[in-house]
């Protein structure tokens, strides 16, 4: 049985904000299916009650003094922006 359908691949591509061609849907479905099938070997293990590890070191809530620092200069920030005008980054219309 396949683990992931073409429809799911299209949905995932949309969530990930990736434009995807029909040909890519086909390739990715097959490849993701075999990777997910491979990953399902983890089901051999009983992990009831095992705490998930998100981070290996025993540290949490690393805080610093709440002190304001100068931000990056505007010209510097805009240097890498693909499109900008009057000191602001320009994007296509968001509201119709």
């Amino acid at each position: 049985m396949s683990r992931i359908s073409e429809e799911q691949v299209r949905h995932v591509a949309h969530l990930a904000r990736l434009a995807i061609t029909d040909e890519e849907v086909e390739t990715f479905t097959a490849q993701l299916d075999s990777i997910i099938q491979f990953a399902e070997q983890l089901n051999e293990l009983d992990t009831t009650g095992v705490k998930p590890t998100s981070h290996v070191l025993d540290m949490k809530n690393v805080l610093r003094e709440d002190k304001s620092e100068p931000g990056l200069p505007r010209e510097e920030v805009l240097k890498n922006a693909p499109d900008h005008e009057d000191g602001q980054i320009r994007v296509p219309a968001i509201i119709e």
Binding site: I4, Q8, V9, V12, A13, L15, A16, L18, E24, F28, Q31, L32, I35, I36, A39, L42, N43, L45, T47, V50, K51, P52, T53, S54
Partner: peptide
């Protein structure tokens, strides 16, 4: 793209526990 899609799938609603959380437990 392949890895972004795999990761998005593993984190998506309905699959999170089966894939992402499971992998975090095996990491332990």
């Amino acid at each position: 793209k392949r890895r972004i899609m795999l990761g998005t799938f593993a984190l998506s609603s309905g699959y999170y526990d089966a894939y992402y959380k499971k992998a975090q437990q095996v990491r332990t």
